[in-house]
Design a protein around this nucleic acid. Structure first.
Lengths: 226, 226
DNA sequence: TGTACATCAGTGAACGCGCGTTCACTGATGTAC
DNA sequence: TGTACATCAGTGAACGCGCGTTCACTGATGTAC
């Protein structure tokens, strides 16, 4: 599928006694690089990873119970980055809408920068995801709680008038941003325009959707009320 | 991955002379059923399909150049259904918002009813999609033109005030609905609530987003204007 | 009406491949006495 | 200080598997003469 070559490393020097866990790190790092280089998780075979690390296939099993565990461990690492990136993006900003915008942007940028990780975490068959990827975990990655509290803050300031429970609304926002990221990843040739433009247009739409009162917009007739 | 058993058919009776194309149909139909039953495209091997049809593997190649062609042919068939379903949903309805709503609902329902088709068409690696799946094709599946003309109609009636080009906005709406469908498919265990509820809430959000004027909602301060 | 023949709709057997995983092993190294 | 030994961090070789795909073939059937 991918034509990217991943070169075999020279034989790795054996870790010193007591430092066996170094291999685990090396494996994760090599797999991480391969995932980004090939953009295709099917190229991440046990053999290919072992070869990239400079080690034989069975040694992988010293640290991971099977291939699936390994692949999700790679993504797990990255998934911590997104949570931190979103927090960093919102840090120091008090305006709730701006906080939401920045978090959304961080999510988008992370997804586009790590498309194959994003695929594995968000688009793979659910049976494949290990048990430790709980709903809470997923909610954390999507930043649902943080978004919900910004929504609450915005409501308190009288700026937002979301219909329904704020946690529900933050799930909707997740879906929206996920829709952007995933179509941009999966249909890279489609003329959507730049991610930047799409993002701006989407957030303008969302802003109106979140802040307009229902009675601002009811039944037609081109005339403005008031 | 999937534990669904697909039983081997009895040996198929050979088509009569001149009716070789019947096999093509039988293959597509069997593959279609398997895709729905197993919900996993990896279970669609040439051998498994041949066995389900009651024929030997090489006969598949009488009608399809390779596995990928076959799989996309299966999805291609279904993809025509979604376009028709969306048209049917909007037929006879004149209110542009209601038309949009119904089309969105048809898209959602089709995606949830055919999750693996949806995956293949919308979430697979773009290199895997055959050339004949053009951008126009994709736009047709998403109903972009139809959505855009409803948007235009709504603007003419003074009910919608979308920011920017209507075709761009219809792309945004596609992304939004795609986000719903794909997360519901890929995270079936996540407590989003019913697809029905999610859909209603999302469309309420969208309605406000599309119909509110930008100056309805500007800068904070809890007070309503007017 | 009879027969040779081309064609059509497949079959049977095999190819080579890369994969995940297992199992018995090895050799360096730290530690206890 | 010397040495036996347990342990650690791996290795080497092989397992069996299912896969996509190819190739030479077969046997029924329609058609031309």
């Amino acid at each position: 599928m991918s034509s990217v070559e991943v070169v075999a490393a020279a034989r790795r020097v054996r870790s010193r006694r007591g430092e066996g866990d170094k291999l685990r790190e090396d494996i994760l790092e090599a797999a991480e690089k391969m995932l980004i280089a090939t953009n295709d998780q099917s190229s991440l075979s046990i053999r290919a990873i072992a070869s990239a690390v400079g080690v034989t296939p069975p040694s992988i099993y010293l640290h991971f119970s099977d291939r699936n565990e390994l692949i999700f461990a790679v993504c797990e690492r990255q998934s911590e980055h997104i949570e931190k990136a979103m927090e960093a993006a919102a840090a120091g900003v008090s305006d709730p809408w701006e906080r939401l915008r920045r978090r959304g942007r961080a999510y988008l940028e992370w997804g586009l920068a790590n498309p194959e990780h994003y695929r594995i975490l968000m688009m793979s068959h659910s049976e494949a995801t290990p048990d430790r990827f709980t709903d809470e975990r997923l909610a954390g990655m999507a930043g649902l709680q943080a978004v919900a509290s910004d929504l609450i803050a915005g409501v308190a300031e009288g700026r937002f008038a979301p219909a329904g429970d704020t946690l529900r609304v933050s799930e909707l926002l997740w879906m929206v941003v996920h829709g952007m990221v995933s179509l941009l990843i999966c249909k890279p040739g489609f003329p959507f325009g730049s991610a930047e433009d799409v993002y701006e247009a989407m957030f303008e739409l969302l802003y109106k959707g979140i802040s307009a009162r229902s009675d601002d917009v009811v039944q037609g007739g081109g005339e403005r009320r008031c």
